[in-house]
Write a protein that binds this DNA or RNA. Structure first.
Lengths: 237, 237
DNA sequence: TCTGCCTTAAGTGAATACACTTTATCAGTT
DNA sequence: AACTGATAAAGTGTATTCACTTAAGGCAGA
């Protein structure tokens, strides 16, 4: 990891997180880790990072500590921070954990009901998905578009669960390298079609106030994503 | 919060976490927060803490950041750290989340099988519980003893799940103030009896390699603890 | 040549100093 | 009396420095 971070991004006119370099550093290191430009197990040298990012070690350390809290880095006393390893089994497990947690989230949502705003976001994402899928096949870029639609749907459900701890845990599951939803370049049209149908049913269960059915549907939904991923990974060997 | 932390604990002869004051500070602050001597919403003043604990602000900040990562504190830029609020509904929710996660944990354990060591710990904790309960009633201190037995059982299962992310999340659930297993001063003999029977059945399901039955039993197990707590809390008003 | 120790460089841990932001206080005004 | 503004105090953010630990390299002895 020589200089993956050194594009001295202007950030001049109050970039993101202006006024707090630690948070800015945090974002950039996280980005680098998630997109794999630092590689697992690698040690993060504080002085090198601080030189690369042109800040002192203090905000660097703060950022690394925070990222360790997110579970992205490991820390050992007197030995500093390393990029946490995510062996394949752990990545697969993350889907089971996520399935369980998102199941609880939609159960909560069904118990508590949707706010007008959440309802609108969800219906819009469902409609957008319908529109995108009605052609019967995918063109270039469609998958990227659906990725955002999918993200909106899940985020809205998370908000509807109205529980912070749950949101944070699910967020951690999504941030497991490779498990990230941004890496769903692996699905065919009919996969997406099926998943979008899942979304419709989950939404119906929520508005019908059927918490346990909603939970079950969501667990199955995420479990099927896991299955697809496992299949994809095993045939790539 | 004047001086809850100031008993200048000797710690001289290589106390816990010697050689790393940040970790030591972290333990002490966490302790103070969990036992409620700091109270929710309160702001943690860095200079005051550093004076109280006789260290500089640097390790104090490190500790606070790490505790924020554990979800115990909140952070706002230029405003520092505050003790996170856990309203009653969030505490109750934590049990649902925990039930779900521990369910996944025992499912994993049943899928993967128990190591000899884990098996031994579990069987010992089951036997110890049997012995403690065979008298048919509780005496003073028995509940405290059972608390440890209970802790061993759950910890061994966690280890058997062999998944770090899962362990950490469950640990967070256990560290929710009031939700902590140390505050189970609320149960009668027959409650404990019932829960201990749950433990036996869960263990049987695991050794029989019945993952989904094990998960279901564990979910129900934790859910019933939640129910007891809710009942206890609502009758105290 | 290999082993073990010693030296030294590299890197993290902690303390201190200073800059900047926020918050509280107090005039002065309406 | 309430509000606005300036000002001072308090508190956090960052940089720098030194102390300590760990890891690496070389040298001596077997």
């Amino acid at each position: 990891m020589t200089d993956q971070l050194d594009r001295t991004s202007p950030e001049s006119t109050s970039g993101p997180r202006a006024g707090n370099r630690a948070l800015s550093v945090m974002d950039r290191v996280r980005e680098a880790v998630l997109e794999g430009s630092i590689s697992a197990g690698e040690r993060l040298n504080e002085v090198q990072l601080s030189k690369t990012l042109s800040v002192s070690r203090t905000p660097v350390r703060a950022a690394l500590q925070a990222l360790a809290g997110e579970g992205l880095l490991d820390y050992a006393p007197n030995r500093g921070f390393t990029v946490r390893e995510f062996p394949l089994p752990a990545i697969v497990d993350a889907y089971d954990i996520r399935a369980s947690l998102e199941g609880v989230a939609v159960r909560f949502a069904a118990e508590r009901g949707l706010g007008a705003q959440e309802r609108e976001i969800i219906e819009r994402s469902l409609a957008a998905g319908d529109k995108l899928l009605e052609r019967g096949s995918f063109e270039a870029g469609d998958l990227t578009i659906y990725r955002d639609i999918n993200g909106d749907f899940h985020d809205a459900l998370l908000a509807a669960a109205r529980n912070r701890m749950l949101s944070e845990m699910i967020r951690i599951c999504h941030h497991v390298p490779v498990s990230s939803s941004r890496n769903i370049v692996v699905f065919e049209y009919h996969d997406v079609r099926r998943r979008h149908d899942d979304h419709h049913r989950i939404y119906e269960a929520i508005v019908a106030r059927e918490p346990w059915r909603a939970e079950m549907l969501m667990r199955e939904h995420v479990a099927s994503i896991k299955t697809s991923l496992v299949g994809y990974l095993s045939e790539r060997r």
